[in-house]
């Protein structure tokens, strides 16, 4: 909180000279920028009432708005593939994992038209108010995710809208015989460090399109093992995968109150989504 205030004060100072210049040209009352001067909690509330894409797009309004969107309480990255390819966080994932298991998939992406990947300033900002994160992309990597969780100390709810379909993407990007033997590029190890939100805030985790592959099982295992105050883990599974569920129930849980809930996945053709 102190950080936000410091940052707001700092940005405040930065804009004063510009505003002064403008006031010579026009009546001060007419040009008063009230929205940029709202307290951080109100800016957070307003931007949280916007879809994630619109909230992020406000970064172009002025230099003060560049980081305002990071004050939101919820983010929903629902853009499946294409738009994620251009986000700095996607680049971040690339840079962070240049020598790790993800590099090959990103080589592929680069071949498909990605430029300037390494030149991007890919530092993830802190999301001080973020309580809800919805990921609509199935290929979110551990590197990216653990960094993101590290930057979201208040996170209470994490939803994988498309599950964690590492195999799906592997099949798509790799040709037959491309990954042989022990070389399984997409099955990364979960990080050893545990982000602070897992220790104290994360209460809900959901996999809407749970396929039960190794990557997903590792992900669930990690959260059950490390999320100390987890209240509910919800998994929407296809009927034929119910056998996976018995294995999941055996996994160790650090939260004594955690309930694992299985839902038979149904597709809603009206909304185009599961549940």
């Amino acid at each position: 909180m102190i950080c936000i205030f410091f940052w707001l004060t700092r940005t405040n100072l930065g804009s004063k000279s510009k505003r002064h210049k403008l006031s010579k040209k026009q009546n001060v009352l007419q040009v008063e920028d009230r929205i940029s001067n709202l307290p951080g909690n109100l800016i957070s509330r307003i931007l949280s009432s916007l879809p994630t894409k619109s909230a992020v797009a406000t970064s172009v309004l002025s230099t003060r708005w560049k980081q305002f969107w990071t004050l939101v309480t919820s983010l929903e990255f629902d853009c499946r593939k294409v738009c994620f390819l251009n986000s700095p966080y996607f680049h971040f994932q690339f840079v962070q994992s240049k020598f790790s298991c993800y590099s090959r998939i990103f080589d592929q992406v680069e071949c498909r038209g990605m430029k300037h990947v390494q030149e991007m300033d890919s530092e993830l900002p802190v999301f001080p108010n973020l309580t809800s994160l919805v990921l609509g992309a199935g290929y979110v990597g551990w590197e990216w995710l653990s960094q993101f969780l590290e930057k979201s100390p208040c996170l209470e709810s994490l939803v994988f809208k498309e599950g964690y379909q590492s195999d799906h993407y592997r099949d798509e990007y790799y040709e037959e015989g491309d990954s042989e033997g022990d070389d399984k590029p997409l099955l990364c190890r979960p990080p050893e460090n545990v982000p602070s939100c897992l220790r104290s805030n994360l209460k809900i985790i959901k996999f809407v399109n749970f396929q039960g592959d190794d990557g997903e099982l590792k992900m669930v295992e990690y959260f059950l093992k490390n999320a100390e105050v987890l209240g509910a883990a919800g998994l929407a599974v296809a009927k034929q995968q119910l056998e996976v569920t018995t294995n999941l129930l055996m996994l160790p849980r650090s939260s004594k109150t955690c309930q694992i809930e299985f839902v038979i996945r149904r597709y809603n053709f009206c909304t185009g989504s599961f549940y």
Partner: peptide, 14 residues
């Protein structure tokens, strides 16, 4: 964005 700037009197200082 230009319209938003005008409505709220946000000066584009980029």
């Amino acid at each position: 964005h230009q319209e938003v700037r005008e409505i709220f009197h946000v000066e584009n200082d980029y």
